[in-house]
Design a protein around this nucleic acid. Structure first.
Length: 426
RNA sequence: AGAGGAAUGGCAGAGUGGUCGAAUGCGGCGGUCUUGAAAACCGUUGUACCGCGAGGUACCGGGGGUUCGAAUCCCUCUUCCUCUGCCA
């Protein structure tokens, strides 16, 4: 979340930034925050004063008892009643103000980086690179992947329906092997690039949800385990980044780089429709995620590095792709800047988002209380970054469609050592 | 799952109602000594919030309570350890 001090100092910049996200009344909203923070300070001063008096009095009473001046002590005791009442009232006021302030801050998104284009929807995203050199020329009879998967019997949606529900497919045979191969390939490549692999829980608690910003903003998008107050992760970003909640690292340790594979669970409430077929949108899918904890001075360099890593992966799979810089209106709640990678799925003639690489600057770190000690031994908020590298099902969809031949589906060369096959056949 | 025990500063570990933000040791940092290092010795060393400052407030696993006053007493939750049971 945003830091009140920063808001106060750069009000215009913040108003402008939120405006880019299409928030009209930003100025009023931010002024309310500043006002609440002032109230908070004022109330704390009053409360501290009352407490100081009580502490003083309590010491005196102790002293009086020790000296055997019982009457005086009893008299002093009577004085404390009033202070106690004041204390109680001010404490209540304090927590009320703090709740309000926090609630406001939780619901204000991050300020976009200046180079983020203004815009309302995905139509306003800026295409920063297109490399469609790998686009295949498919015949008239080219099939979308949902036809191919039944033809080759590698993914079973019906079975998923039966056992769980829509959006929870079974991968079978060569399909399962492809998934496993991609996960291993992505993990290995990340490791080569210096990311330390972690295997995380796939259930997270509320604190973690708040830490990375899924709560309270996206509660409806996560599956909740209501009887234990836990949530299924929508992305490995949550458990991995939350490793560093309430942590102070040494500057020399930065950047910290992690990679993790997890299944991801998303309710996708409201986004289900006719345009979503096959592997395009699922409730459960596999994803390899890269995460960095960075020095603010270096975070944009590292963002570029992450983008380059993802680009290399997509390219190595032989898929046509493009890179988008998301506009303010399409930007995630906690992100300051996001680059989306899309691959072209040639039979359905659609761009599929397979990666999202973001810099959150201090927005998550402030919630996480994730700091580093700089050279002067001062504690500063770190920057957090993450990116998908990559999301499996849509990559699979693109491979199936783009690589279909009369003989079968060609397995990208880089995956062959992992699949042990060069072709998916009937 | 049952019985018992425990949770204190970076770590170890004292502290059972006031003088305790907390002894002591280790570690860290600074210094003396040394050609340099070690050893020894001296000093220093938690976090957050409020305040221009002096200073104040809060924090001894979390939450609540008793009390003029709680690390210390009570309730509750969580976690860990030991023993018994079960189990991949």
């Amino acid at each position: 979340m945003l830091q009140v001090n920063n808001i106060q100092e750069n009000l215009d910049k913040f108003v402008e930034g939120l405006g880019k996200r299409g928030i009209q009344n930003a100025k009023d909203l931010l002024n309310e925050v500043i006002d609440l923070d002032d109230q908070r300070k004022k109330t704390q001063q009053e409360l501290d004063e009352v407490k100081a008096k009580s502490n003083q009095l309590a010491k005196q009473i102790g002293q009086l008892f020790k000296e055997g001046k019982k009457d005086e002590a009893e008299a002093a005791k009577a004085e404390t009643a009033e202070l106690k009442e004041k204390d109680k009232a001010l404490s209540e006021q304090m927590s009320f103000i703090q709740d309000q302030l926090l609630n406001k801050l939780y619901n204000i998104p991050n300020i976009p980086n200046p180079i983020v284009p203004a815009g309302k929807s995905e139509d306003d995203n800026e295409v920063v690179k297109v490399d469609d050199s790998a686009t295949p020329t498919l015949g008239e009879d080219a099939k979308p992947h949902w036809d191919l998967i039944s033809e080759y019997d590698i993914i079973d949606f019906e079975l998923g329906n039966k056992v769980t529900g829509a959006g929870f497919p079974f991968y079978k045979g060569a399909g399962a092997r492809m998934v496993r191969a991609m996960i291993n390939y992505f993990l290995d490549e990340a490791q080569k690039a210096g990311y330390v692999e972690v295997q995380t829980p796939i259930l997270i608690n509320e604190d973690s949800g708040y830490g990375t910003g899924q709560l309270p903003d996206k509660e409806g998008q996560m599956y909740g385990i209501t009887d234990s107050n836990l949530f299924l992760i929508p992305t490995a970003e949550v458990p991995i980044t939350n490793i560093y909640r309430d942590v102070i690292v040494n500057e020399a340790e930065l950047p910290i780089k992690h990679v993790g594979y997890t299944p991801c669970f998303r309710r996708e409430a409201g986004s289900w429709g006719a345009h979503v077929r096959g592997l395009n949108r699922l409730h459960q899918f596999d994803k390899v995620e890269i995460v960095q904890i960075a020095n603010p001075d270096k975070s944009y360099e590292l963002l570029d590095e992450m983008v380059a890593h993802v680009e290399k992966l997509v390219k190595s799979l032989g898929l046509p792709y493009r890179i988008l810089r998301l506009c303010g209106g399409d930007l995630g709640f906690t992100s300051a800047i996001t680059y989306d990678f899309e691959v072209y799925s040639a039979a359905q003639k659609k761009w599929l988002e397979v990666s999202s690489v973001s810099n959150f600057e201090t927005y998550q770190a402030n919630r996480l209380k994730l700091r580093y000690k700089n050279a002067d031994n001062k504690k500063q908020l770190a920057h957090t970054l993450n990116g998908s590298a990559l999301a499996v099902p849509r990559i699979l969809a693109a491979i199936l469609e783009n690589n279909q031949t009369p003989e079968g589906i060609k397995v990208p060369e880089v995956l062959q050592p992992y699949t042990g096959m060069s072709m998916i056949t009937k």
